[in-house]
């Protein structure tokens, strides 16, 4: 059984039909990527998963349980955590306070301390700057912080919304390296990206979404070689 499954999901913003019959599966321990252009419905898909936008029809399952009845903040407790697009760190709080708020749903202080240790191991830069105001971090560091903050809950599945957006090429490489490390440690990841080449190189499977519909679904390697995908999303 898939860990996360979207089954025939439709979603609307008022009259705009943003998602049309989207079905996606993410198995435990997988990196799955969802690629597509601007306005294709990538972020909307993530919104229906994290509960901030309820599907108008269709279901979202986590380990077989329908998530429709849970409000957004309960879904976080279920183990689905999102790293929002554009990082959205709490710029006026310190790095430590950001991480602390990431662990908001947790009530086990000891475990939180261990998780912080782990995150600092993964991102040593954050440890160096733990008392600095987060808004003064560089873009790459802010992305680290956003990911660290999401990891504070020890999520079952991590939703990454365009983590490479607005970063220099070197830093983009770093972000994808980190994603691989997280994957190696056993985190399940759904990666939404515009940088299709990097995303498909990192992921095991991929979905291509266009105007609210999933148009391709295949192993990442095969998608990398798909002429249509190459032409539309990799500029070849």
């Amino acid at each position: 059984m898939a860990m996360l499954e979207l089954k025939n999901v439709h979603a609307h913003y008022g009259k705009i039909h943003a998602l049309k019959n989207v079905s996606i599966k993410v198995n435990k321990g997988e990196i799955v990527t969802l690629i597509g252009g601007n306005g294709a419905g990538k972020s909307t898909t993530l919104k229906t998963i994290s509960g901030t936008l309820k599907p108008s029809s269709g279901q979202v399952f986590l380990n077989g349980e329908d998530l429709a009845k849970y409000p957004a903040h309960e879904i976080v407790k279920k183990g689905i955590v999102q790293v929002p697009e554009g990082r959205r760190i709490f710029g006026q709080l310190t790095v430590m306070e950001n991480l602390d708020l990431g662990a908001f749903t947790s009530k086990d202080k000891k475990k939180d301390a261990q998780t912080i240790e782990k995150i600092f191991e993964l991102f040593p830069r954050l440890a160096e700057r733990c008392r600095q105001v987060a808004g003064t971090l560089s873009g790459g560091e802010q992305q680290m912080l956003a990911m660290g903050r999401a990891l504070m809950t020890n999520p079952k599945i991590l939703l990454l919304d365009e983590p490479s957006m607005g970063l220099a090429p070197v830093l983009v490489d770093n972000v994808f390296k980190t994603i691989k490390i997280l994957h190696a440690e056993g985190t399940t990841i759904l990666l939404v990206e515009q940088n299709a080449r990097m995303a498909l190189k990192t992921a095991s499977r991929g979905y291509v979404i266009q105007t609210g519909k999933v148009i391709f679904e295949d192993d990442a390697k095969k998608l990398l070689e798909n002429e249509m995908v190459k032409k539309a999303y990799m500029g070849d």
């Binding site: 903040h73 959205r88 760190i89 708020l101 908001f104």
Partner: peptide
């Protein structure tokens, strides 16, 4: 504090707005 800084993210952190 989280809500004051960013409502959407606060919700994504599991805060009941």
């Amino acid at each position: 504090m989280a809500m004051r800084e960013d409502e959407d993210v606060a919700q994504a952190m599991g805060i009941n707005l």
